[in-house]
Write a protein that binds this DNA or RNA. Structure first.
Lengths: 114, 114
DNA sequence: TACATATATAAGCATATTATTATATATTGA
DNA sequence: TCAATATATAATAATATGCTTATATATGTA
């Protein structure tokens, strides 16, 4: 739980990455639940490619990781990222986004492939 | 020291604002020292209008405030901002930028108008 | 008052960002 | 094997961003 320091240019890149409402919401959701692309498509009012592109940016930065489970690719927070601590810190300032998943559930769009 | 929550869209805006290396460095410096525009001009390899424009964005968001002292306008962190807590949290992940002020001092460019 | 210094604003331009649509690829299951 | 579903990539277009230069405004001082 060491409070290490990030290069300021690197930190700025991460803040820019998270300085987008869609991506920030994604990350907040992923803090508590893994999600697949189609769930995000259900949550955001945006095309599937747009969702994929946001996830790609998060993945390229190492903030999230992906695992294929059958037909679906699930994204999760990368707890081993060197930015994880910063990200956790940020997320603590944000309200839960669990309502978005609850809505999905109501619509029968929640994926569970266990 | 209440840990209150920010609207996620608002938080994203603040992160975007700070997701620029120049502005993030400015804020980190202002965390410890008030600075005037011409000092920032000395620190960053950038024109004076560019500096003013960055400061304007920070001011418009309420992250920093300004006070005229004679010929100079000094900027400072706005400790009353509703984002102050978030900002402090972010800054704790960044290395000190005091070397930049030290360099200024060496060049005789540090302003003190007390 | 006139000039120097500090700062802000305006206009313009190059580049980055974020969406869209169209299409490619991978997996599942009949 | 073929069709359906899930996801990724490519091309493109609209808008945003971050500089630059030119200019305006405010203050201090001879």
């Amino acid at each position: 739980m060491l409070e290490s320091t990030l290069d300021i240019g690197t930190a700025a890149q991460i803040l820019k990455l998270l300085g987008d409402k869609t991506r920030l919401t994604m990350v907040k959701i992923l803090d508590h639940h893994d999600c697949c692309v189609c769930e995000f498509v259900g949550i955001f009012n945006m095309s599937q490619p747009a969702i994929s592109q946001h996830l790609r940016k998060l993945k390229d930065a190492g903030v999230v990781g992906e695992t294929r489970r059958g037909q679906w690719i699930f994204y999760s927070l990368n707890k081993n990222s060197e930015y994880y601590q910063l990200v956790q810190n940020l997320l603590s300032h944000l309200p839960s986004q669990d309502d978005k998943l609850a809505q999905l559930e109501e619509q029968g769009l929640r994926i569970s492939c266990e």
